[in-house]
Design a protein around this nucleic acid. Structure first.
Lengths: 195, 195
DNA sequence: GTTGAAACTGAACGATCGTTCAGGTATTAA
DNA sequence: TTAATACCTGAACGATCGTTCAGTTTCAAC
């Protein structure tokens, strides 16, 4: 499949260009990038990359990258499947963690976890939690809440007698807010970065 | 500070444009976006946004976004500090999870965790691990390895009698690879996404 | 009210843009 | 060898690009 290898190389060149310039090249820049001496020559591969979803056409015919091309991470299977090293020449789909994890960028924040009250849920001190404000929590959601003036992270539950918060650590106990409770946001993801 | 508020609004408009078009607008497009009737008017705010690091100048004078502008997530403090709602009118720095977590995009992959052998390290079945290939593991790194034909995720250690792998679950036991061991990669981050 | 500075306009410039197309070159199958 | 086909070239087009600048408007400070 010589055609696929060719496209893969061009996509890699485009990705390299994007990494340094943070924009899509013009047709003439692509011609130089690909080694053509006429910019008309790049129309064919560009059309194919658009069909494959790596590029898109913007106003005035200008080319822009899709997240499929600018995402940073290739997706493989499971740990048990391991790395069967998917034939390096393939056009690997990539994903952007931002697009994958963040639905509403304007109301999403990153907090650092302090305390071990959610440790049985696999949330350790020092972990980062991705929190979405302005949502309505459902049962068993993990939320950031202010109870009696103090901010905590707990499981959220609602029953017939009202709202309560459960920790994920037997050393702590259930909280039934007496006064007011402010929901700061809902934990949508947990991120742990090593070193 | 009326100047800051103005820039914040323009930056938001630029971010909205980038979300839909996935590129930076031209000067005439910016004029329309900002409500100016002359594209010469956008030079001043653009220069300021470049100075602040949200935009950059690319070849031919064209404007491109930096990751400071296209990142998706605002950074706050810790859980205990909570949301003191940082004066909505501020120019919030944002971060891209991709840039934050991925150092070498070309050799980074995402795997789904199966099995509970690392559960005491807070890595649960269904979690995603961000794995970097081609690195040399250090003691206590979590690695993906193929031992006797089977892929597993374990802590990596090396002592005077060789290499061994430890689980983070007392139900499993230490592995000292008899035959060959292939290191698939080093776990650089763990990501858990809810719902 | 006057003044001064900043913000904005509108027109102009050469350069580059995206697009098209006729023609040339290379590659492949018969 | 020939024919067919895909690939590439080079030139041309109007449109839009980034940039500059003289002139106007706006607005706050005095």
């Amino acid at each position: 499949m010589p055609r696929q290898i060719d496209l893969k190389k061009k996509l890699d060149q485009l990705r390299a260009f994007h990494r340094s310039e943070r924009r899509a090249p013009s047709y003439s820049e692509m011609a130089e990038l690909f080694g053509y001496s006429s910019k008309a020559a790049v129309y064919a591969p560009v059309r194919k990359l658009i069909d494959l979803g790596y590029l898109k056409r913007s106003a005035g015919g200008r080319i822009a990258f899709t997240q499929k091309a600018t995402g940073k991470i290739a997706i493989l299977g499971t740990v048990q499947a391991g790395f069967q090293s998917p034939a390096e020449e393939e056009l690997l789909d990539t994903i952007s963690l931002d697009e994958f994890l963040v639905r509403r960028p304007e109301s999403t924040f990153l907090l650092t976890v302090s305390g071990d009250s959610m440790i049985d849920a696999g949330i350790h001190p020092g972990d980062l939690v991705l929190v979405e404000k302005n949502g309505a929590p459902k049962n068993q959601d993990i939320i950031i809440a202010q109870v009696d003036g103090e901010w905590t992270m707990k499981y959220f539950f609602r029953d017939k007698s009202g709202v309560y918060l459960d920790p994920a650590n037997p050393a702590y106990s259930r909280i039934r807010p007496r006064g007011s409770m402010v929901v700061g946001g809902i934990v949508r993801a947990v991120i742990r970065k090593y070193q």
